[in-house]
Amino acid sequence: MYRIGELANLANVTKRTIDHYTNIGLLKPERSASNYRYYTEEALKQVRLIEEYKKQDLSLKDIKLLLQDGTSSSSQEDHLLSETDEVLKQIKELNMNLEHVLPLIEKLNDQDKKLLRSRLSSKSVSLMHSLLMLLS
């Protein structure tokens, strides 16, 4: 059993996040005789799963529906594995595209490179940097 601060630390989120998840019904703590909230190991797994779903850009409303639809923890993990496989497939496709585009970019003059850079969002640049790091 974990108190809110312990759960937050183990799940790498804030106490405020745990409070929010509890208030909207994503987590259900147990109460002690002195009315302290205690969370089980299952709650820790739940928070980690919620955070994984959030990384997939799912809203908390959608996450709540996923968690309430009666799917077991193992089927949720299967879903995450399936999503991970899909992301890996997309990374492989992006890698092939990148291998095609990089030589073309290298041929550009400095002014054209600046123009190209200005058209990319910071998120896109970060993503491309991450992909290059993964591929090297």
Rank of each mutant, 00 (worst) to 15 (best):
M1P: 00
Y2F: 15
Y2T: 06
I4W: 00
L7T: 00
A8W: 03
A11Y: 04
R16N: 06
R16D: 04
R16F: 05
T17R: 07
I18F: 01
H20K: 01
N23S: 14
I24H: 02
I24E: 01
G25C: 02
L27V: 03
K28L: 05
P29F: 08
R31S: 04
R31Q: 04
R31A: 04
S32E: 10
Y36K: 07
R37N: 01
Y38G: 05
A43Y: 09
A43R: 02
K45Y: 09
Q46H: 08
V47Y: 03
R48G: 03
E51D: 10
E51H: 06
E52Q: 13
E52F: 11
Y53P: 03
K54M: 12
Q56M: 14
D57A: 08
L58F: 15
L60W: 02
K61I: 12
K61T: 13
D62K: 11
L66T: 01
D69T: 12
D69Y: 09
D69S: 14
T71R: 13
T71N: 11
T71I: 07
S73F: 10
S74P: 00
Q76H: 15
Q76R: 15
H79V: 03
L80S: 01
E86C: 10
E86R: 15
L88E: 10
K89Y: 13
Q90C: 11
Q90D: 09
I91P: 00
K92N: 15
E93V: 11
N95K: 11
M96G: 04
N97R: 14
N97H: 09
L98W: 06
H100F: 09
L102S: 06
I105D: 08
D110N: 10
K114N: 11
K114Y: 13
L116V: 10
L116M: 14
S118C: 09
L120Y: 10
L120Q: 13
S121K: 13
S122N: 13
K123H: 07
S124A: 14
V125E: 11
L127E: 02
M128Y: 12
H129G: 05
S130H: 13
S130N: 10
L131A: 11
L134F: 15
L134V: 06
L135M: 14
